[in-house]
Amino acid sequence: MEPTRTCRLIRSSRTYHGKQGFDYAEAISKESVDSQGICMHLLTIPPGQRAKAHLHQAHETAIYMLKGRSAMWYGEKLDQHMEVEEGDFLYIPAGMPHLPYNPSDTESCTALLARTDPNEQESVLLLPELEALWLKQQAPAD
């Protein structure tokens, strides 16, 4: 017999450490409420911190910047860049390599994230080779 599906309230008090290198506030996911097609959580990036280069296989991501400012390197070689400000919406297509970070040395930034993957971490694919290439590109010329 299948369990009865019903509405669920989540008061986010727990966090989990994602493969990307950030801590996320637990919210809506397959793991927390048995969602079937969406994962939603809150991310606060401390000043000066960045994620590991990654992509989400076959799943789209929608982000709303609640507080502060974030930035992101993205693209097949992480050679494109954008800044996201408070009140902005950001769409990341499935399979798009990206490396988000907080450019501020003093202020945290907070965003609400939603993905079409109900599992919190299942579709996360780390890209260490791409991150190494990006780090090499960021190094000052001698």
Rank of each mutant, 00 (worst) to 15 (best):
Q20C: 10
F22P: 08
W134E: 04
A25K: 13
L112Q: 02
L42G: 06
C109S: 09
E76M: 03
S32C: 04
G95R: 07
M82N: 01
K77P: 00
C7W: 07
M65Y: 01
Y64K: 06
P100R: 00
P3D: 02
S123E: 07
E107N: 08
L133G: 03
W134Y: 08
Q20H: 10
D117N: 10
H56Q: 12
A94T: 07
R115Y: 05
K52P: 04
D142N: 12
Y64W: 14
T6Y: 14
H54K: 09
L127N: 05
L42K: 07
S12T: 10
L113S: 03
H81S: 11
Q137H: 13
L133W: 08
R69G: 00
L112E: 01
Y101V: 07
Y74G: 03
I45S: 08
E107H: 10
A27Q: 06
L113H: 04
P47E: 00
Y64Q: 04
G21R: 02
Q121S: 12
A139N: 05
S35G: 07
L133K: 07
L9P: 02
R8S: 11
R5S: 13
S123Y: 09
M1Y: 06
P46N: 13
K30M: 15
T61K: 09
L42I: 12
E26R: 15
M82H: 01
L66R: 08
G21N: 02
M65R: 03
L127C: 11
Y64E: 02
T6W: 14
G37T: 06
A94I: 05
Q57E: 12
T4I: 13
P47K: 00
D23A: 13
I45D: 00
E76A: 09
N102D: 11
E129Y: 09
L42Q: 04
A139Y: 03
T61V: 11
E107K: 11
T61H: 06
S104Y: 09
L112M: 05
P97G: 02
A27W: 09
Q57V: 15
D105Q: 14
E76G: 05
Y64F: 15
T110K: 03
P97V: 00
T110V: 09
R14L: 15
K30F: 15
A62K: 12
E31M: 05
M96R: 06
G75L: 15
Q36M: 11
H59P: 03
E86S: 05
M1A: 14
P93V: 02
M82C: 08
M1T: 14
L43D: 10
E131P: 00
E26C: 15
R69L: 02
R5I: 08
D142E: 14
G48F: 06
V33F: 00
V124S: 07
R8W: 06
E131F: 12
A51T: 05
C109Y: 07
Q36L: 14
P3L: 08
I38R: 05
L78S: 00
L127A: 08
K19S: 10
W134G: 01
Y24A: 02
L135S: 14
P93A: 11
L126K: 09
R11F: 13
G37V: 04
D23T: 13
A25Y: 11
T61I: 11
E83P: 05
L113R: 00
M40P: 06
H54N: 08
V84C: 13
A114T: 12
Y91M: 11
